[in-house]
């Protein structure tokens, strides 16, 4: 079947209404649930930080979980809403494979950012003293109510 307007397109996808609406509904609910979980984790992190000595490892674990959930959300948006999941496999690969570059992109940048901090903490004591939060009344909020603010 030739597409009416583009001769390079060999045939057309057809999805029946029922499957389509079911799929969209399912995805919407899924995205909402993931977002709610993410928010819940955000609040958990907030409460951990309020404690006397926050467990950094626990915080890191929760942050890792949010990252994974975000990737899941991205997957559903791209695959269902943008219909990439319905495309030919090779097309999917041309999108997914270049994104792998982000792995080294992120790793190298963050690695060097971290190293820059270590270098300055080692060789720029002023930087270290003025920017490191003092222990005891560090960056954790011990108070329930918000900082003074004007609406």
């Amino acid at each position: 079947m030739q597409h009416p307007a583009f001769e390079e397109v060999s045939f057309h996808h057809h999805t029946d209404d029922d499957t389509f609406y079911k799929k969209v509904k399912k995805t919407t609910i899924l995205l909402s649930i993931i977002t709610v979980i993410e928010l819940a984790i955000g609040l958990i992190i907030y409460n951990i930080h309020k404690g006397e000595s926050p467990n950094e490892l626990l915080v890191l674990m929760f942050k890792g979980m949010v990252c994974i959930l975000t990737l899941a959300k991205a997957y559903y948006i791209v695959s269902v809403f943008m219909h990439l999941g319905d495309e030919i496999r090779n097309m999917v690969m041309t999108i997914v494979v270049p994104l792998l570059l982000f792995i080294w992109f992120i790793t190298a940048f963050i690695w060097d950012g971290n190293s820059y901090r270590n270098l300055r903490n080692n060789y720029d004591k002023h930087f270290q003293e003025t920017t490191t939060p003092a222990k005891g009344h560090g960056h954790q909020d011990k108070h329930q109510d918000p900082p003074a603010g004007k609406q």
């Binding site: 570059l101 080294w104 992109f105 190298a108 690695w111 060097d112 190293s115 820059y116 270098l119």
Partner: peptide, 22 residues
């Protein structure tokens, strides 16, 4: 081409170990 960019930056204060990967 996408994996080697920091070889232009060996003497900038780039982490030397990261540099060796590059």
């Amino acid at each position: 081409a996408f994996l080697v960019w920091a070889h232009h930056m060996f003497v900038t204060g780039l982490n030397p170990f990261l540099g060796s990967v590059f």
